[in-house]
């Protein structure tokens, strides 16, 4: 078997196939060409395309449907917002504090004549 496969000449096979198609009837050839065209038309191109349809579908499930759900969602969002503002205010040193603790004297920034 190994010896046989070594003798396989690909070009020879191609010639054999070409010569055999010459021997086919026109009707068979035209049917084959048509099948080939249809197959190419139906071929699915596997290109990655971003689609929002899946996200939209999932988002639809996450959206509140009833009034109670809307109220609960609003309360949760308000709590998150208040928490975020509180955290931001806590993390952010007020500018007043920076003026009062800076190594430059306060008089540098304060205009006493106003």
């Amino acid at each position: 078997m190994k010896k046989y496969s070594q003798h396989i000449n690909h070009q020879h096979i191609a010639k054999l196939l070409s010569s055999s198609t010459d021997q086919l009837d026109d009707s068979v050839l035209s049917a084959l060409r048509q099948a080939h065209t249809v197959a190419l038309d139906k071929q699915r191109v596997a290109e990655p395309v971003f689609s929002l349809s899946t996200i939209g579908h999932r988002a639809h499930h996450l959206m509140p449907h009833s009034t109670h759900q809307w109220i609960a969602t609003s309360i949760i969002l308000a709590a998150i917002l208040i928490g975020a503002i509180g955290y931001w205010q806590d993390a952010q040193m007020p500018v007043d504090m920076e003026i009062l603790t800076d190594d430059l004297p306060i008089e540098v920034f304060v205009d006493q004549h106003e």
């Binding site: 003026i99 009062l100 603790t101 304060v110 205009d111 106003e114």
Partner: peptide, 23 residues
């Protein structure tokens, strides 16, 4: 902070705002 606090509190709101902008 404590040394400057009284001075800061005695300023007018406009003076404090001007100081913030300068800072």
């Amino acid at each position: 902070f404590q040394n400057r606090l009284v001075t800061w509190a005695q300023l007018t709101p406009a003076q404090r705002q001007a100081a913030r902008e300068k800072y």
